[in-house]
Measured scan of single mutants.
Amino acid sequence: LDITFHVDGKNIHVHGASEEVVRIIEELIKNNARAEEIKETLERLLR
């Protein structure tokens, strides 16, 4: 699975993920999660 995301100002662009995963990533970023935390969360979800 190949998910890429980047933050452009306040806009979060996520590619290669389901809508549910996109929402989770957006929440994590809004809550100022570190990249490592986001990665760990995604790995748990995608197991």
Rank of each mutant, 00 (worst) to 15 (best):
L42N: 00
V22H: 04
I24D: 03
V22F: 05
A35Q: 07
E40Q: 12
L1W: 08
T41N: 08
N11V: 15
L28F: 05
N32F: 07
E37N: 08
V14E: 00
H6W: 15
L1R: 12
A35L: 15
V21Y: 03
K10W: 14
E43P: 00
G9V: 00
E27T: 10
N31H: 11
I3E: 04
K39F: 15
G16M: 05
H15G: 04
N32R: 10
E36R: 08
S18N: 07
E40D: 13
R23M: 12
R23A: 12
I3W: 15
N11M: 15
A35F: 15
E43K: 11
S18L: 04
R44Y: 07
H6P: 15
E27A: 13
T41Q: 11
E27H: 12
T4P: 01
H15M: 08
K30N: 09
I29V: 07
T41E: 12
V7W: 03
N11G: 05
D2K: 07
D2I: 04
V22N: 02
R23E: 08
E20P: 06
G16L: 06
L46I: 13
R44V: 12
I3G: 02
D8W: 01
K30Q: 10
K30V: 10
T4R: 10
R47D: 13
R34C: 07
E19C: 04
R23S: 09
E36I: 09
R34W: 06
V14I: 09
F5N: 05
I3R: 05
S18K: 06
D2Y: 02
L28D: 01
E37D: 13
R44K: 13
E37V: 12
N32Q: 12
I29Y: 02
L42S: 01
E19M: 14
K10G: 09
E26S: 14
R47P: 15
A33L: 06
E20H: 10
K30L: 12
G9L: 02
V7C: 10
N11K: 13
G16F: 05
N32C: 04
D2L: 04
S18G: 06
K39C: 06
G9W: 01
E19T: 13
N11S: 14
L45F: 06
L45H: 07
H15K: 11
L1V: 15
D8S: 03
D2G: 03
I25C: 03
G9M: 01
I24S: 06
K30G: 09
G16W: 03
E26H: 14
V21L: 15
E36L: 09
I3N: 02
N31G: 11
V7R: 00
A35T: 06
N31I: 09
V14G: 01
R23D: 07
V14W: 06
H6V: 15
I29D: 00
E40W: 04
K39E: 14
I24N: 05
E43I: 10
F5E: 06
L46D: 06
E27R: 08
F5P: 04
K10A: 14
A17C: 03
R34H: 13
A33H: 11
V22Y: 05
L1G: 08
I25K: 00
I29W: 02
E20N: 07
L42V: 09
V21S: 05
G16Y: 04
A17E: 01
L46M: 14
E26G: 11
E40H: 12
E40K: 13
E37A: 12
G16N: 14
